[in-house]
Design a protein around this nucleic acid. Structure first.
Lengths: 205, 205
DNA sequence: GTCTATACCCGGATAGAC
DNA sequence: GTCTATCCGGGTATAGAC
């Protein structure tokens, strides 16, 4: 993403897109907590006020990043939506994909699940999330037959476990490097299968 | 925790303890992210420089809070350490206690599992964590017979699930109020039992 | 659409008086 | 042990020129 050609600075193809790109970089370096519009502007060589021509405020940038995050994640899940495949295997693959997504796109994952972007102030987020929800919920329903309570209880358990493994990985508890990702993803997949196998225990007594 | 009696301000019984107390309050209001020594000082009516007589810096305060957090959590787990009880039930109770602790002591929970207090710079944390680790690990080992790999794999799965449920609760996904806590805790306990029941699926193929 | 400039608020941390 | 005072750096956001 180099300058568009006029001068040394950023004058300018698409500052909006460049800001999102740079913000993601910065979140990768300092975490969501430490990201600021000011630093992004500096890195792009524009004035600190420039972003305000494209975004209302800081949280508006995070919301835009979140939308991209949901799109990227939905794309990862797409291969496992095929209803012809066995539901348990699909869910295990999705758990694995969840952990891998957290690893490969850590900044996006953080924005989705760690930044608290106000979903009321940014309604487009709910829409962006829907494909992800659907991919997951459909597979769970395929497994439970669609009965209300067991479906919800199993879905919650699977999500909780996947999130837990992803966080453990991000905390470095599996170590660093490709092997760590593989291990975390594999364990998440196995835990998914274990929960599915004993799903009868998940709903009330 | 009112003033010690001299004047209207805080002059002073135990500023160190009062700071910890106030910091926990503030974390409850703004999250770990938003807590600052300056605001704590203001709330206590002391100079912003006063804390530095008791703590090296901001992270030192968080470390002190973390120590208290581990102590409080260990106390919650104590009833379930009894080796006479069945291990599966103990682990289910611990998962439930984990979620309840997150709910009842949210600020402490955040400091323990969300603030990244540098464990190298604050070695006392490892010591404080040990009772918690032990309570949990012993119960898992009692269940698996102590074999290295299955013990670690099951422990990871149970922790991941409990953490996931706690986060879901804190995100408000179970709703608000006492009923929400009960539900989240109950589901965490059931998921624990489900994972234990299918623990054969957790270790490699 | 981007600039310069600015107003404003916040935080961490230190020096030196009492 | 606490105060006052201060330095320094950082961020958000706006106004007005080009």
């Amino acid at each position: 993403m180099p300058p568009t050609g006029k001068g040394g600075r950023y004058h300018h193809g698409d500052l909006r897109a460049a800001l999102i790109e740079t913000a993601i970089e910065l979140i990768g370096e300092h975490g969501v907590r430490g990201f600021s519009l000011a630093e992004a502007s500096r890195r792009l060589g524009v004035a600190v006020s420039a972003p305000y021509a494209h975004f209302a405020d800081r949280s508006d940038v995070l919301a835009a990043i979140a939308v991209r995050g949901y799109q990227a994640f939905a794309a990862e899940l797409a291969p496992y939506e095929d209803p012809a495949l066995p539901p348990a295997g699909r869910l295990a693959a999705m758990a694995s994909a969840y952990v891998r997504f957290a690893a490969a796109q850590r900044p996006l994952f953080e924005v989705l699940y760690d930044a608290d972007v106000d979903k009321d102030r940014h309604p487009e987020l709910a829409a962006a999330e829907k494909p992800v929800r659907d991919a997951f919920d459909c597979s769970v329903a395929a497994l439970t037959g669609g009965d209300e309570v067991p479906t919800r209880d199993l879905a919650t358990a699977l999500e909780a476990a996947a999130r837990g493994y992803a966080l453990f990985y991000l905390d470095g508890q599996f170590g660093e490097g490709a092997a760590a990702v593989d291990e975390a993803a594999a364990r998440a997949a196995r835990a998914t299968l274990a929960l599915i196998a004993s799903r009868g225990l998940l709903s009330g007594p």
